[in-house]
Amino acid sequence: MAKYILFGSYCDNALEKRTPYRQAHLEGLGKQKEAGILITLGPTKDNTKVFGIYEAETEEIVKNLVESDPYWRNNIWTDYEIKEWIQAF
C-alpha cells in the first residue's frame, strides 16, 4: 500500500474553537489507527499546522477521511494538501 502525507493549517484560536469537536475527532483518529490506515497525526507546537502520515490504497481514501473529520467539517482545519510519499528508509 502507498503512504501519503497530509499538510494542513488550523484556524485562528484553534485550541478554543476545537473544544466541541475534539472528542469526536480523537475517536475517529483512533479508529483509523486501529484499522492501520493512520500512522501518525498531530499539530505543530505553535498549533498552526497539522501533519499526518497515512497508509492507504488510494489518495481518495485519505481525502475522504480528512474531509469527514469534525475538524475539517467545522473549519478547525482550514486547508490541506495530500501527497504520495516515498519512504526512503
Rank of each mutant, 00 (worst) to 15 (best):
P20K: 07
I53M: 14
E55R: 00
Y80R: 01
Q23K: 12
I53P: 08
I39Q: 08
N75M: 11
Y10W: 11
G8L: 05
A88S: 13
F89T: 12
K49W: 08
F7W: 12
Y71G: 04
C11A: 14
H25A: 09
A24I: 04
L15K: 11
D79M: 13
V50S: 10
L26N: 01
W77I: 11
C11V: 14
I37M: 11
K83E: 03
Q32G: 04
E67T: 10
E55T: 01
L41I: 15
K33F: 03
K17R: 15
G28E: 01
Q87V: 07
A14T: 10
L15T: 06
T40L: 09
N74Y: 03
W85V: 01
K63Y: 04
I5H: 08
Y10P: 11
K45W: 14
T19R: 04
K45A: 15
P20R: 07
L65N: 02
I53H: 05
P70N: 05
G30D: 03
P43N: 14
K31H: 09
D79G: 13
T44G: 14
K63V: 12
E67F: 04
N75I: 09
K49A: 07
I61E: 05
L65H: 07
D46L: 07
G42P: 12
R22H: 04
L38F: 05
S68K: 08
D69I: 00
L29Q: 12
N74E: 02
Q87S: 12
T19D: 07
N47C: 15
Q23M: 01
Y4C: 00
C11W: 08
S9G: 09
Y4L: 01
T44W: 14
V50P: 10
G8I: 04
F89Y: 12
